[in-house]
Amino acid sequence: MVPFSKETAMKKIVLIEDEQHIAEALQFLFTQQGWKVAMHNDGATALDLIRSEAPDLVVLDIMILNKSGLDVLREMRESKDIADIPVLMLTAKGQANNRMAAELAGATQFMTKPFSNAELIETVRALIP
């Protein structure tokens, strides 16, 4: 009904996840919410994509190809142009040290797999109001 405002309000999310099925699930859920999703599975080139997309949020898995998600996050925080983008860290490991490592690296939020869809959406919404 308010296409323009909707267009301008359309939030963009970069999703970096190398598990095909999980990536598909997230893409479906985010698109359902009306967010624009750019998917990527390689840690080595993740930063380039983030820089070119300039998203409102990065959803980042810790275990990705070629490079640790934590390293991607650290480099992100060190690059001025993309340092301020909020990052939601995903991990399949529930240990406390993972959470701490993520926070130290500069993660804005942290979620452990598996998660409920509702919880995920709520968390993302809180990050891109």
């Binding site: 598990e19 999980i22 699930a25 997230l26 797999k113 598996p114």
Partner: peptide, 18 residues
Amino acid sequence: VSHELRTPMTSIRSFSEI
């Protein structure tokens, strides 16, 4: 192992909820 178990479980849970 935990990681390997959580990964498929994440897909399963997510899609079953969808």
